[in-house]
Amino acid sequence: MENPIIETFGLGKKYHISNLVNKNTEEKGLLGGIKSIITQPRHQPKWALRNIDIKVEQGDIVAVLGGNGSGKSTLFRLLSEITDPSEGEIILRGSVSCILEAGVGFHHELTGKENIYLNGTLLGMSTEEINAQFDQIVAFSELEQYLNVPIKKYSSGMYIRLAFAVASFLRTDILLVDEVLSMGDESFRQKSIKRMKQMADEGCTIMMVSHDAKILRDICCSAIHIEQGQLIGQGSMGELFKSYSEK
Protein backbone atom coordinates (compact mmCIF):
# COMPACT_ATOMS: atom_id res chain seq x y z
CA MET A 1 0.00 0.00 0.00
CA GLU A 2 1.09 3.53 -0.73
CA ASN A 3 2.23 5.93 1.92
CA PRO A 4 -0.57 8.00 3.39
CA ILE A 5 -0.79 11.48 1.91
CA ILE A 6 -1.00 13.13 5.33
CA GLU A 7 0.75 11.82 8.44
CA THR A 8 1.26 13.52 11.75
CA PHE A 9 3.35 12.36 14.70
CA GLY A 10 2.70 13.71 18.19
CA LEU A 11 1.46 16.97 16.76
CA GLY A 12 0.80 19.72 19.29
CA LYS A 13 0.15 23.43 19.28
CA LYS A 14 0.53 25.65 22.30
CA TYR A 15 -0.87 29.17 22.46
CA HIS A 16 0.10 31.79 24.97
CA ILE A 17 -2.98 33.56 26.15
CA SER A 18 -2.64 36.76 28.07
CA ASN A 19 -5.19 37.90 30.62
CA LEU A 20 -6.65 34.48 31.17
CA VAL A 21 -8.75 35.22 34.21
CA ASN A 22 -7.48 33.36 37.20
CA LYS A 23 -10.06 33.72 39.95
CA ASN A 24 -7.76 32.84 42.83
CA THR A 25 -5.17 35.49 42.23
CA GLU A 26 -7.49 38.22 40.96
CA GLU A 27 -7.22 41.25 43.19
CA LYS A 28 -9.40 44.28 43.40
CA GLY A 29 -8.69 47.95 43.00
CA LEU A 30 -5.92 49.85 41.26
CA LEU A 31 -3.17 48.69 43.60
CA GLY A 32 -4.29 45.10 43.33
CA GLY A 33 -4.38 45.43 39.55
CA ILE A 34 -0.83 46.72 39.43
CA LYS A 35 0.28 44.05 41.83
CA SER A 36 -1.30 41.29 39.78
CA ILE A 37 0.37 42.59 36.62
CA ILE A 38 3.74 42.38 38.31
CA THR A 39 3.30 39.10 40.10
CA GLN A 40 1.29 37.09 37.58
CA PRO A 41 2.99 35.51 34.63
CA ARG A 42 1.94 37.62 31.66
CA HIS A 43 1.14 34.75 29.37
CA GLN A 44 -0.28 31.41 30.26
CA PRO A 45 0.23 28.49 27.95
CA LYS A 46 -2.76 26.60 26.66
CA TRP A 47 -2.53 23.55 24.49
CA ALA A 48 -4.99 23.85 21.62
CA LEU A 49 -3.92 20.45 20.28
CA ARG A 50 -1.72 17.77 21.69
CA ASN A 51 -0.48 14.29 20.79
CA ILE A 52 -2.27 14.12 17.48
CA ASP A 53 -1.27 11.12 15.36
CA ILE A 54 -3.34 10.77 12.22
CA LYS A 55 -2.99 9.18 8.83
CA VAL A 56 -5.03 10.13 5.79
CA GLU A 57 -5.01 8.09 2.59
CA GLN A 58 -5.06 9.67 -0.82
CA GLY A 59 -8.53 10.24 -2.30
CA ASP A 60 -10.31 9.95 1.03
CA ILE A 61 -12.94 12.37 2.18
CA VAL A 62 -12.38 12.68 5.89
CA ALA A 63 -14.74 14.33 8.35
CA VAL A 64 -13.16 16.09 11.30
CA LEU A 65 -15.58 15.81 14.21
CA GLY A 66 -15.49 17.76 17.45
CA GLY A 67 -17.28 20.41 19.44
CA ASN A 68 -16.57 24.13 19.43
CA GLY A 69 -13.03 24.94 20.45
CA SER A 70 -11.89 21.35 20.16
CA GLY A 71 -8.98 22.27 17.93
CA LYS A 72 -10.34 21.48 14.47
CA SER A 73 -9.37 24.80 12.93
CA THR A 74 -6.00 24.69 14.65
CA LEU A 75 -5.40 21.31 13.04
CA PHE A 76 -6.19 22.82 9.63
CA ARG A 77 -3.91 25.78 10.31
CA LEU A 78 -1.07 23.41 11.12
CA LEU A 79 -1.68 21.14 8.12
CA SER A 80 -1.78 24.10 5.74
CA GLU A 81 1.40 25.53 7.30
CA ILE A 82 -0.23 28.83 8.19
CA THR A 83 1.35 28.37 11.57
CA ASP A 84 4.09 26.08 12.87
CA PRO A 85 3.48 23.29 15.38
CA SER A 86 4.89 23.67 18.88
CA GLU A 87 5.82 20.00 18.90
CA GLY A 88 5.55 16.98 16.70
CA GLU A 89 5.86 16.56 12.99
CA ILE A 90 3.71 16.69 9.87
CA ILE A 91 4.42 14.83 6.66
CA LEU A 92 2.52 16.03 3.62
CA ARG A 93 2.87 14.22 0.32
CA GLY A 94 1.17 16.79 -1.87
CA SER A 95 0.11 20.40 -2.15
CA VAL A 96 -2.40 21.76 0.34
CA SER A 97 -5.11 24.36 -0.02
CA CYS A 98 -7.04 25.41 3.00
CA ILE A 99 -10.41 27.12 3.13
CA LEU A 100 -10.86 28.25 6.70
CA GLU A 101 -13.48 30.77 5.78
CA ALA A 102 -15.63 31.34 2.73
CA GLY A 103 -14.09 33.93 0.45
CA VAL A 104 -10.81 34.74 2.10
CA GLY A 105 -9.46 38.03 0.80
CA PHE A 106 -12.84 39.06 -0.62
CA HIS A 107 -13.12 42.81 -0.56
CA HIS A 108 -16.62 44.22 -0.39
CA GLU A 109 -15.89 47.13 -2.74
CA LEU A 110 -14.57 44.91 -5.50
CA THR A 111 -16.75 43.24 -8.11
CA GLY A 112 -17.41 39.52 -8.25
CA LYS A 113 -14.97 39.13 -11.08
CA GLU A 114 -12.16 41.02 -9.35
CA ASN A 115 -12.73 38.96 -6.23
CA ILE A 116 -12.53 35.69 -8.13
CA TYR A 117 -9.02 36.60 -9.24
CA LEU A 118 -7.89 37.90 -5.85
CA ASN A 119 -9.29 34.93 -3.94
CA GLY A 120 -8.11 32.42 -6.52
CA THR A 121 -4.51 33.61 -6.49
CA LEU A 122 -4.49 33.64 -2.70
CA LEU A 123 -5.62 30.04 -2.67
CA GLY A 124 -2.73 29.17 -4.93
CA MET A 125 -4.02 29.39 -8.49
CA SER A 126 -2.08 31.16 -11.20
CA THR A 127 -3.77 33.85 -13.26
CA GLU A 128 -3.67 31.56 -16.30
CA GLU A 129 -5.41 28.79 -14.39
CA ILE A 130 -8.16 31.16 -13.35
CA ASN A 131 -8.50 32.46 -16.90
CA ALA A 132 -8.82 28.91 -18.17
CA GLN A 133 -11.49 27.96 -15.67
CA PHE A 134 -13.17 31.31 -15.33
CA ASP A 135 -16.30 30.34 -17.26
CA GLN A 136 -16.72 27.15 -15.25
CA ILE A 137 -16.31 29.03 -11.97
CA VAL A 138 -18.91 31.59 -13.00
CA ALA A 139 -21.30 28.92 -14.26
CA PHE A 140 -20.94 27.00 -11.01
CA SER A 141 -21.68 30.08 -8.93
CA GLU A 142 -24.73 30.96 -11.09
CA LEU A 143 -23.80 34.62 -10.80
CA GLU A 144 -23.33 35.48 -14.48
CA GLN A 145 -25.44 38.63 -14.20
CA TYR A 146 -23.72 39.96 -11.12
CA LEU A 147 -20.09 39.62 -12.10
CA ASN A 148 -19.51 43.34 -12.39
CA VAL A 149 -21.39 44.28 -9.25
CA PRO A 150 -19.43 45.04 -6.07
CA ILE A 151 -19.94 42.13 -3.73
CA LYS A 152 -21.18 44.37 -0.94
CA LYS A 153 -24.45 44.29 -2.89
CA TYR A 154 -24.51 40.50 -2.84
CA SER A 155 -26.80 38.54 -0.56
CA SER A 156 -25.05 36.18 1.82
CA GLY A 157 -26.10 33.23 -0.32
CA MET A 158 -24.55 34.80 -3.40
CA TYR A 159 -21.38 35.48 -1.45
CA ILE A 160 -21.09 31.85 -0.38
CA ARG A 161 -21.79 30.63 -3.89
CA LEU A 162 -19.01 32.78 -5.32
CA ALA A 163 -16.59 31.73 -2.61
CA PHE A 164 -17.29 28.04 -2.96
CA ALA A 165 -17.17 28.21 -6.75
CA VAL A 166 -13.58 29.46 -6.67
CA ALA A 167 -12.57 26.90 -4.07
CA SER A 168 -14.08 24.01 -5.96
CA PHE A 169 -11.91 24.58 -9.00
CA LEU A 170 -8.64 24.50 -7.13
CA ARG A 171 -6.10 22.07 -8.47
CA THR A 172 -4.62 20.75 -5.31
CA ASP A 173 -3.73 17.36 -3.82
CA ILE A 174 -5.22 18.09 -0.41
CA LEU A 175 -8.18 20.33 0.28
CA LEU A 176 -9.09 21.38 3.80
CA VAL A 177 -12.59 22.83 4.13
CA ASP A 178 -13.83 24.41 7.32
CA GLU A 179 -17.56 24.94 7.70
CA VAL A 180 -18.25 26.31 4.27
CA LEU A 181 -20.80 23.91 2.90
CA SER A 182 -23.44 24.30 5.56
CA MET A 183 -24.35 27.71 4.23
CA GLY A 184 -26.20 28.22 0.97
CA ASP A 185 -29.52 26.75 -0.03
CA GLU A 186 -30.36 23.09 -0.52
CA SER A 187 -29.88 22.94 -4.28
CA PHE A 188 -26.51 24.66 -4.14
CA ARG A 189 -25.51 22.35 -1.33
CA GLN A 190 -26.35 19.28 -3.39
CA LYS A 191 -24.32 20.70 -6.22
CA SER A 192 -21.35 21.39 -3.94
CA ILE A 193 -21.47 17.90 -2.48
CA LYS A 194 -21.49 16.45 -5.98
CA ARG A 195 -18.53 18.61 -6.92
CA MET A 196 -16.57 17.50 -3.83
CA LYS A 197 -17.16 13.84 -4.65
CA GLN A 198 -16.02 14.52 -8.17
CA MET A 199 -12.84 16.14 -6.90
CA ALA A 200 -12.18 13.14 -4.68
CA ASP A 201 -12.66 10.81 -7.66
CA GLU A 202 -10.06 12.85 -9.51
CA GLY A 203 -7.62 12.03 -6.69
CA CYS A 204 -8.00 15.03 -4.41
CA THR A 205 -7.92 14.27 -0.70
CA ILE A 206 -10.46 16.25 1.27
CA MET A 207 -10.72 16.91 4.98
CA MET A 208 -13.76 18.78 6.16
CA VAL A 209 -15.31 20.29 9.23
CA SER A 210 -19.02 20.83 9.41
CA HIS A 211 -21.63 21.02 12.10
CA ASP A 212 -24.12 19.71 9.62
CA ALA A 213 -24.18 15.98 10.27
CA LYS A 214 -26.20 15.25 7.17
CA ILE A 215 -23.55 16.57 4.82
CA LEU A 216 -20.80 14.69 6.57
CA ARG A 217 -22.69 11.40 6.44
CA ASP A 218 -23.45 11.99 2.77
CA ILE A 219 -19.91 12.36 1.57
CA CYS A 220 -17.36 11.30 4.14
CA CYS A 221 -16.18 7.72 4.35
CA SER A 222 -13.76 8.10 7.24
CA ALA A 223 -13.50 10.44 10.18
CA ILE A 224 -11.25 11.91 12.85
CA HIS A 225 -12.67 12.86 16.23
CA ILE A 226 -11.01 15.52 18.36
CA GLU A 227 -12.18 16.83 21.72
CA GLN A 228 -10.38 19.52 23.72
CA GLY A 229 -7.24 19.15 21.72
CA GLN A 230 -6.99 15.40 22.16
CA LEU A 231 -7.49 12.78 19.52
CA ILE A 232 -10.45 10.59 20.51
CA GLY A 233 -10.34 8.33 17.53
CA GLN A 234 -9.81 7.84 13.85
CA GLY A 235 -11.71 5.35 11.75
CA SER A 236 -14.72 4.81 9.55
CA MET A 237 -17.36 7.48 9.50
CA GLY A 238 -20.14 5.17 10.65
CA GLU A 239 -18.46 4.04 13.88
CA LEU A 240 -16.99 7.34 14.91
CA PHE A 241 -20.09 9.29 14.14
CA LYS A 242 -22.11 7.02 16.39
CA SER A 243 -19.83 7.56 19.37
CA TYR A 244 -19.61 11.29 18.56
CA SER A 245 -23.35 11.85 18.48
CA GLU A 246 -23.95 9.81 21.63
CA LYS A 247 -22.02 12.35 23.65
Partner: peptide, 18 residues
Protein backbone atom coordinates in the same frame (compact mmCIF):
# COMPACT_ATOMS: atom_id res chain seq x y z
CA UNK B 1 3.75 37.17 -7.96
CA UNK B 2 0.10 36.80 -9.01
CA UNK B 3 -0.95 37.50 -5.44
CA UNK B 4 1.10 40.70 -5.50
CA UNK B 5 -0.37 41.85 -8.78
CA UNK B 6 -3.93 41.24 -7.62
CA UNK B 7 -3.30 42.95 -4.27
CA UNK B 8 -1.92 45.98 -6.11
CA UNK B 9 -5.00 45.99 -8.31
CA UNK B 10 -7.24 45.72 -5.25
CA UNK B 11 -5.60 48.67 -3.52
CA UNK B 12 -5.72 50.88 -6.59
CA UNK B 13 -9.36 50.03 -7.26
CA UNK B 14 -10.60 50.61 -3.74
CA UNK B 15 -8.76 53.90 -3.26
CA UNK B 16 -10.91 55.69 -5.78
CA UNK B 17 -14.20 53.83 -5.51
CA UNK B 18 -17.01 56.00 -4.18
Amino acid sequence: RPILSHLIRRDVLITYKQ
